[in-house]
Design a protein around this nucleic acid. Structure first.
Lengths: 222, 222
DNA sequence: GTTAATTTTTAAGTTTGCTTAAAATATAAT
DNA sequence: ATTATATTTTAAGCAAACTTAAAAATTAAC
């Protein structure tokens, strides 16, 4: 498998779980930074290899074999991120890019050694679940997206989307990361902002952020 | 820089220091496992980028810029090998293959972090010197190739060539590795063997091995 | 329910890093 | 020194993974 197929399968897998108005193909164009024609080419090619289901003008779907391959790449990516943060102390926002390249050059043997070294972590530094050797992970941490949170309720940040550099910068600046608590002060105003209290101050989060932050409700103080 | 150019420059650098009867180009064909035509192509291409000096039918030479790039790759390779052995406890004979792929996907930033983590090691697990950030290393550990050793003298193994899988297997089987001592019993016989005593027994090393083992003489017992 | 706008596909072409086969040059042998 | 052998280069071509431009199909708009 080439780097391109790795990335294609991984992207299809991830875009599929992130349900969205746009079709997967269209979002692949953005995610992979290639032309639409390249997506069609690759889709046909991988369909022929039994990794995706492809019919012209229909939504792409992974086969079981394709999902397995995708999860293997996701596993490598998230274990590397965890390793780079925990062992080499690389800052949070830098690990994605490094892992993005290392993931394709890491044998199953090596990644299993890394997994063992880290003592089989379940979550990566951004709060994403890490697939185990069999491709299994707990995806149901009872989480929701912040934008769905009710006013005056308390939450813990569980997961943070990190593909977008601008988002990462914003998170960093405001010290937003998994494990942090926050309280929704007021819901979306007409300008598309949601006010939350966190780290001792109140900030207005733009809609884009509020859609990319995953949270878990916690019981109110009695 | 692509993986192919990385490997080309690294190979030219290494074959150059290993002086040998055959020309560098010819040995590149074996080392990189490509046709002679591919070597010429790449040579022209890299010459045009100012990384090597190329004139038809003449020996290839790295420019300073080319040597710098080559050393950066060598540095990444050897630091990864060291890291994999020391931190992840990957067996000696497996690290070369992993490092061979990781080296091309490791940023300067990351490799410097690894270097720092390991506390700036000077030698990799095979006894090869590790270039520092500036590309400097001690190549003169006063070493010689075993085949040049005199009868009845004692040596310490300092370095072991590890590109050849067969050699690695042989080393492993006989527990031959840097740091081990040996004594030359008799020099090359007419069949091309040299007898040495090591690990408590006497073994006949074929010429190929005796040319790939680097040793350092030690004072005889009084 | 047409027409318009958007998305996806097809077709043709590019670049990188190879390949094989033949020609050119260098090296070795007598 | 000439011939034979080996090496290197040139020439032509291929596959992967793209590209742009145009055509086809789908979706949205009125």
């Amino acid at each position: 498998m080439s780097v391109s197929t790795d990335n294609f399968l991984k992207a299809v897998y991830q875009l599929h779980s992130d349900k969205h108005q746009k079709a997967v193909s269209a979002r692949l164009v953005e995610r992979l930074n290639v032309s639409g024609a390249a997506i069609t080419d690759m889709a046909k090619h991988l369909a022929q290899k039994g990794l995706i289901e492809y019919e012209p003008y229909k939504e792409l779907r992974l086969t079981n074999k394709g999902r397995e391959k995708a999860l293997a790449v996701v596993r490598k990516h998230r274990l590397w991120e965890t390793f780079l943060v925990q062992v080499l102390q690389i800052p949070w926002e830098k690990v994605h890019g490094e892992a993005e390249r290392l993931e394709h050059q890491t044998s199953d043997y090596l990644i299993d050694k890394i997994d063992e070294f880290l003592d089989y972590p379940k979550l990566d530094p951004h709060g994403d679940p890490i697939p185990d050797v069999k491709g299994e992970m707990d995806e149901t941490i009872n989480e929701m997206v912040l934008i769905a949170g009710k006013s005056d309720a308390d939450f813990i940040i569980t997961r943070v989307q990190h593909h977008d550099e601008d988002l990462m910068e914003f998170y960093n600046k405001h010290n937003i990361r998994p494990g942090k608590g926050l309280r929704v002060i007021s819901k979306m105003d007409k300008f598309g902002f949601i006010s939350v209290e966190m780290n001792g101050s109140t900030i207005a989060l733009p809609e884009k952020i509020a859609r990319s932050l995953y949270v878990k409700p916690i019981a109110k103080n009695p």
